[in-house]
Each structure stands twice: as structure tokens, then as C-alpha cells.
Amino acid sequence: MKIVSDLLTSIEGIQIFYIIGLLIFVVLFIVITIRTMRMPDKEMENIKNSILADGESEEITTSN
């Protein structure tokens, strides 16, 4: 690969990139999951029904 410069030349320490990448995922996943689960259900219902309430659907069935 002459066309791109050799920025990194050793594989030593490479695993840190993956560990960082995975950590970012795990932390974000936990945070997003917890925060999402704590969202109020009532609000969720409104969001879910919003796409049906476009004046075209005959009736809206929201009961679960």
C-alpha cells in the first residue's frame, strides 16, 4: 500500500481499539436500555398512534 502512508506499523497494542469500541457499545447499550425502559408508557402510546392518525385510517385500534 504505497498509496496510503504507513501510519501504524505494529500490531502490538491493537486490541485496545477493540476493547474501547466494545466498551463504548456496552456502556451506551446499558444507558440507552435503562433510559428507554423508564420512558412513560402513556407517552409511548401517543407516539405509536401518531402514524395512524393521519386522517386516512378508518379507525384506530390502540387497545393492547
Partner: peptide, 21 residues
């Protein structure tokens, strides 16, 4: 799917989590 069934999507929370993952 919600439009054709005329029913809201099952879980909006799930959609958030599965989108980002």
C-alpha cells in the same frame, strides 16, 4: 405493517434499543 394492520407498532421502546444496537 402498522398501516396495513391498522394497529400501532408493538413497542416503541424496543424499536429504540434495537435500532441503535
Amino acid at each position: 405493517l402498522p398501516k396495513a394492520a391498522n394497529r400501532p407498532i408493538y413497542s416503541y421502546k424496543l424499536s429504540i434499543i434495537h435500532f441503535w444496537s
